[in-house]
């Protein structure tokens, strides 16, 4: 009869799915059409070698810059999710500090070319070998594996948008002041995601697969934090003077 559960109607789920999907498309940094036009231009071998020859700190600084650019789009995405701006400012900061990089990793599957195992980076598509100078091969492998797994689900933009919002609105983040309000928002987002997956006749296991992605995302973020502190131990001045301020604020 159109009632999904006493608190949330089908119409409300459709509305939420529409708003989140629109927010995602407005802030996704790269539209799929743009990406298709770029026809997966891979870096040439000499370009790959020039990245590999960069000093470690220079490559780190470049990657920190690219991550920070992507995070700024995620902040804009969050601001457009209805309910997010009604949260107290403390909780908005907590959710973005913990979740913005996770959404960046989710969004990476949109710019991942599974045929060549390459990812859009610095104007072309780069394989893991481009990032050798970072000295974080295990993290890079995990990032590429995650992008490959996510892209193998072939999620629509609407499904990706709702999953991104679901991850961002994690009620289990520490330091939340109004956990209950975040929980309510996350539950509604999950219901909207389930509703869209059913509407798109996705097979049942997709939601469970997406739930498993949440722990993979947490592990990617802690790997990133470990690598950053190891790097900063060797190059404290580089981080302080050359890394983007927002990056230092979030991960410092």
């Amino acid at each position: 009869n159109g009632e999904t559960s006493p608190t949330v109607s089908m119409a409300e789920l459709d509305h939420l799915a529409h708003v989140v999907s629109k927010s995602h498309l407005e802030t996704c940094q790269y539209l799929r059409e743009e990406l298709q036009q770029m026809n997966c231009q891979n870096f040439l071998q000499d370009e790959v070698e020039s990245y590999q020859k960069k000093p470690r700190e220079v490559m780190w600084q470049l990657c920190a810059l690219k991550i920070t650019e992507a995070i700024q789009y995620v902040v804009e995405f969050a601001k457009r999710i209805n309910g997010f701006m009604d949260l107290c400012q403390n909780d908005q900061i907590v959710l973005l500090k913990a979740g913005s990089l996770e959404v960046v990793f989710i969004r990476m599957c949109r710019v991942f070319d599974s045929h060549n195992n390459t990812i859009y980076f610095d104007r072309k598509f780069a394989g893991p070998d481009v990032f050798k100078a970072l000295g974080c091969d295990d993290l890079i492998t995990s990032v590429f594996d995650f992008a490959k797994n996510m892209s193998s689900l072939h999620l629509t933009e609407e499904e990706l948008a709702l999953f991104s919002a679901f991850v961002l609105l994690s009620a289990d983040r520490s330091w939340l002041q109004d956990k209950l309000q975040v929980e309510k928002l996350q539950q509604k987002t999950q219901l909207a995601l389930q509703h869209v997956l059913q509407k798109n006749q996705r097979e049942d296991g997709v939601l469970n697969k997406l739930r498993c992605k949440v722990s993979a995302l947490r592990s990617l973020c802690s790997q990133h934090t470990e690598k950053l502190s190891a790097f900063r131990a060797i190059y404290p001045d580089i981080v302080r003077t050359h890394f983007p301020p927002l990056y230092k604020e979030l991960f410092g």
């Binding site: 902040v75 601001k79 701006m85 400012q89 403390n90 907590v94 973005l96 301020p245 927002l246 604020e249």
Partner: peptide, 17 residues
């Protein structure tokens, strides 16, 4: 937390362009 995250706080305050 707001004190330690001035940039993020500012981004959140900016109107959604």
């Amino acid at each position: 937390l707001k004190e330690k995250h001035k940039i993020l706080h500012q981004l959140l305050q900016n109107s959604t362009s």
